[in-house]
């Protein structure tokens, strides 16, 4: 997933490439590869371990502004005009409804459908294990399974498409 933020008038780019089950992430930040570990103990708060240093960030979003509190400072991030709704653009792709993707890093436990199968809204498609918990990922549309990109046992990162559907229109 690619992000652009404006901080103090400058654009900062971040690509989150992959994440693993135990919270390790690979990313490219400002052209540099970075590896970090992330965890969260409560909504709005997450802890990063980056270059060996522990950082706890508290985050809130309002009207397209993102506020991040770290070490006594509040950093305000905006989304650049040209790529406004970077969050939502990702979301459209993510939530395009005909592309079923991993909402979080995890291991695919089971694919519950086959190519060519007709699916209905709320029908479970995938079982994904993340942090020792199994979660069903469900369809939100009426459709037909067009492609399955991973197998059981595969690790997937956040945002990676696992299944593609063709929408059935009335």
């Amino acid at each position: 997933m690619d992000f652009e933020f404006v901080v103090d008038g400058k654009i900062k780019r971040l690509s989150l490439n992959s994440g693993t089950l135990d919270g390790f992430y690979d990313a490219v930040y400002d052209g540099r590869p970075v590896k970090f570990r992330a965890s969260s103990f409560q909504s709005n708060s997450l802890t990063l371990i980056l270059d060996g240093r522990v950082t706890t960030a508290h985050i809130a979003e309002s009207d397209g502004r993102i506020f991040v509190y770290i070490s006594g400072k509040v950093v305000e991030l905006g989304v650049p005009k040209s790529t406004q709704n970077e969050y939502s653009k990702e979301m459209v792709e993510y939530g395009a409804q005909d592309k079923i993707s991993a909402p979080m890093p995890g291991k695919i436990v089971k694919i519950l459908v086959e190519i060519g199968e007709t699916v209905k809204p709320k029908q479970p498609l995938i079982v994904l294990e993340s942090m020792k918990m199994e979660n069903e990922i469900k369809s939100t549309i009426d459709g037909v399974v067009k492609a399955i990109k991973f197998n059981s046992g595969d690790l997937v990162g956040p945002g990676q498409t696992i299944i593609e559907l063709s929408r059935l229109t009335e």
Binding site: L16, T55, L77
Partner: peptide
């Protein structure tokens, strides 16, 4: 700022 951007990306995603 660097850490804030990374945190915001992760949070947003």
């Amino acid at each position: 700022i660097d850490r804030a951007v990374i945190a915001a990306g992760l949070y947003g995603g």
